[in-house]
Amino acid sequence: MTEESDAKTRILVIDDGITMRLYYRSVLEAAGFEVEEAANGVEGHEKALSQHFDMMIVDINMPKMDGYSLLRAIRKNPAIHGVPAVTISTEARPDDAIKAFEAGANFYLTKPVAPEDLTEVARLMTGGSPR
């Protein structure tokens, strides 16, 4: 719980779709979270290294570095390996969820995500309500 802290709970959204990033931002900011964006896995990795985050939302299909590769890289890095991560993908492939958990995801959602599901999962992953 982070009630005693003034700092907002920070979420890193990693998705190559601009609309998707804006949507996550709008939903999560309305629920009191602070949001930072990255447009592919490499940029997500850079940002995860250079700033503190309480949680990551990771798309699977992205240019340069996909979500699974990103999660594996992050789980290997002692400085950031513990950040909770939710993967969000299209649902056509049934083994996607298994691959996501093997790569190090803590939760798995499919697109399109309803706003209430997104905030619910974000609260769950970050240990309660933001602020």
């Binding site: 699977i60 299909n61 240019p63 340069k64 996909d66 979500g67 590769s69």
Partner: peptide, 12 residues
Amino acid sequence: SDDVQLRNGAIE
């Protein structure tokens, strides 16, 4: 492909 790296590399 089931291999996500291959898939995304092909798209790029």
